[in-house]
Computed example of a mutant assay.
Amino acid sequence: MFKTSSLIIALSLFAGISLAQAAERVEVFKSPYCGCCEKWVEHMRKAGFDVVTKDVNDVPAARKAAGMPERFGSCHTAKVGGYVVEGHVPAADVQRLLKEKPKAVGLAAPGMPQGSPGMETNHPQAYDTLLVQADGSSKVFAKH
């Protein structure tokens, strides 16, 4: 009989997912009425993350409680590996964040950039994923 951890390892290896990814739980705070948030959640699950959603009526309050400055706001806020992820940040950026472990609050894709995960469109726009620092400053982490 497999123990739960053995089963996770076996399934992760079978799916080609790293063990670090398989163990990472993403907690997403979102409006119960937002379809693009659900699409981002699916994007993260397909990348191998264990995603748990929490429907909230006040996403800005959840963002504030998580420590992400309002000026980086989007339609959902997530927590993973001790970081905050704001908005439609690509899973590859989150994976890089967890691998590099920079000293930061987390990542943000402010607003709702067209063409980002969950916001797919025929007319994508260029956007940046920002690394947000504890002092509220930011720098470009990835260009898309």
Score class of each variant (00 low, 15 high):
residue 2 F to G: 02
residue 2 F to R: 10
residue 2 F to M: 12
residue 2 F to E: 14
residue 2 F to Y: 14
residue 3 K to M: 13
residue 3 K to G: 14
residue 3 K to Q: 14
residue 3 K to L: 15
residue 5 S to T: 13
residue 6 S to R: 09
residue 7 L to T: 10
residue 7 L to S: 13
residue 8 I to P: 03
residue 8 I to S: 06
residue 12 S to C: 11
residue 12 S to Y: 07
residue 12 S to N: 11
residue 13 L to T: 12
residue 14 F to A: 15
residue 14 F to I: 14
residue 14 F to T: 14
residue 14 F to E: 14
residue 15 A to S: 15
residue 16 G to H: 07
residue 16 G to I: 06
residue 16 G to A: 12
residue 16 G to M: 09
residue 17 I to L: 13
residue 17 I to R: 15
residue 17 I to V: 15
residue 18 S to V: 09
residue 19 L to A: 11
residue 21 Q to P: 00
residue 21 Q to G: 08
residue 21 Q to D: 15
residue 21 Q to K: 10
residue 22 A to T: 10
residue 22 A to R: 12
residue 22 A to C: 10
residue 22 A to Q: 08
residue 22 A to G: 12
residue 23 A to S: 15
residue 26 V to C: 03
residue 26 V to W: 01
residue 26 V to D: 03
residue 29 F to P: 00
residue 29 F to L: 01
residue 29 F to Y: 14
residue 30 K to H: 08
residue 30 K to P: 02
residue 30 K to N: 03
residue 30 K to A: 03
residue 31 S to W: 08
residue 31 S to Q: 09
residue 32 P to K: 11
residue 32 P to Q: 07
residue 32 P to G: 10
residue 33 Y to F: 13
residue 33 Y to C: 02
residue 35 G to L: 04
residue 36 C to S: 12
residue 38 E to Y: 00
residue 38 E to A: 11
residue 39 K to P: 02
residue 39 K to V: 07
residue 39 K to H: 12
residue 40 W to S: 08
residue 40 W to Q: 06
residue 40 W to A: 07
residue 42 E to M: 13
residue 43 H to G: 04
residue 43 H to Q: 08
residue 44 M to P: 01
residue 45 R to M: 14
residue 45 R to S: 14
residue 46 K to R: 15
residue 46 K to T: 11
residue 47 A to T: 11
residue 47 A to Y: 09
residue 47 A to N: 11
residue 47 A to P: 12
residue 48 G to C: 13
residue 49 F to Y: 08
residue 50 D to Y: 05
residue 50 D to I: 02
residue 51 V to G: 06
residue 52 V to M: 09
residue 52 V to C: 02
residue 54 K to G: 00
residue 55 D to L: 05
residue 55 D to E: 13
residue 55 D to Y: 04
residue 56 V to W: 01
residue 57 N to D: 10
residue 58 D to T: 06
residue 59 V to H: 05
residue 62 A to R: 00
residue 62 A to W: 00
residue 62 A to S: 11
residue 63 R to T: 08
residue 64 K to M: 01
residue 65 A to Q: 07
residue 65 A to W: 00
residue 65 A to D: 06
residue 65 A to V: 00
residue 66 A to P: 02
residue 68 M to L: 10
residue 69 P to C: 08
residue 69 P to L: 05
residue 69 P to G: 05
residue 70 E to C: 01
residue 70 E to D: 15
residue 71 R to H: 13
residue 72 F to P: 02
residue 73 G to I: 06
residue 74 S to Y: 09
residue 75 C to F: 08
residue 77 T to I: 01
residue 77 T to S: 03
residue 78 A to N: 01
residue 78 A to I: 00
residue 79 K to F: 00
residue 79 K to E: 02
residue 79 K to L: 06
residue 80 V to D: 03
residue 82 G to C: 06
residue 84 V to Y: 03
residue 84 V to S: 04
residue 85 V to I: 15
residue 87 G to H: 06
residue 87 G to N: 08
residue 88 H to F: 11
residue 89 V to Q: 04
residue 90 P to L: 07
residue 91 A to S: 14
residue 91 A to L: 06
residue 92 A to Y: 01
residue 94 V to I: 15
residue 94 V to H: 02
residue 94 V to W: 03
residue 97 L to E: 01
residue 97 L to R: 04
residue 97 L to G: 03
residue 98 L to M: 12
residue 98 L to K: 05
residue 99 K to N: 07
residue 99 K to Q: 12
residue 101 K to H: 09
residue 103 K to Q: 13
residue 103 K to H: 10
residue 103 K to L: 02
residue 104 A to N: 04
residue 104 A to P: 03
residue 105 V to C: 05
residue 106 G to K: 03
residue 106 G to R: 02
residue 106 G to T: 01
